[in-house]
């Protein structure tokens, strides 16, 4: 091994966890796992008796946008979606069985692409609200597709879909806007998070 190769190896060994997954370090992954766990647990613990479809988006999408805003790197949404999806399957959340995983994973995946489109400016209330609403609607679409795949009668799936889309948009946007406010307040204080 010549000298430059040795120096390169030494540099890699000095910070082996800088690029653990998707350009994310191990510390970021642990924080994102925490957000993912919070999403699944909050859905399990918080049962607000609002009887409105999509009301859980207010904290579900809020936590997703907050996680993405505080760790603005590609892949952070995917990690949160993966962790919350796996936990949802393990905890038996929802009526879709193992397919419930997609309900948690797709909003996270969508948020990764949306954040790129909005230049990672999730601290803006407008961007936060739009991202929250869109990922909340993506959850609704996954629900619809899972219903079709699981042979649920079309009457149950299509009736009230318009109203459901409005409630998903409103609660998702509210969650995203709240997350944007929190990101704006927290981000300067987390400058030396690493």
């Amino acid at each position: 091994m010549n000298q430059p190769e040795k120096e390169e190896l030494a540099a890699e060994l000095s910070s082996p966890l800088d690029r653990f997954m998707f350009d994310l370090g191990l510390a970021d992954l642990m924080r994102l796992s925490m957000f993912g766990t919070l999403i699944a647990i909050s859905k399990y613990v918080l049962r607000i008796p609002m009887h409105l479809p999509g009301h859980s988006s207010i904290y579900w999408m809020g936590l997703l946008v907050m996680g993405k805003g505080l760790i603005p790197k590609f892949g952070s949404g995917i990690i949160m979606g993966l962790v919350s999806g796996i936990l949802a399957v393990v905890l038996g959340l929802g009526k879709e069985g193992v397919f419930v995983f997609f309900k948690y994973f797709i909003p996270g995946l969508g948020l990764d692409f949306l954040a790129v489109l909005f230049f990672y400016k999730l601290e803006s209330i407008w961007v936060g609200a739009i991202c929250g609403a869109l990922i909340s609607l993506s959850k609704m679409l996954v629900n619809l597709l899972l219903g079709i795949a699981l042979n649920i009668p079309m009457v149950f799936l299509a009736m009230g879909l318009g109203f459901t889309s409005i409630t998903h948009t409103v609660f998702g946007a509210a969650g995203g806007a709240l997350a944007a406010i929190v990101i704006k307040r927290l981000k300067p204080r987390l400058a030396n998070w690493e």
Binding site: V127, I130, L134, L137, L141, M159, G160, L161, G162
Partner: peptide
């Protein structure tokens, strides 16, 4: 564009239901 996209999705949901 994001707002227009949301309106399109909500409109599509109403259209599908109808």
């Amino acid at each position: 564009l994001g707002l227009i996209f949301i309106v399109v999705i909500v409109g599509s949901a109403f259209l599908l239901e109808h």
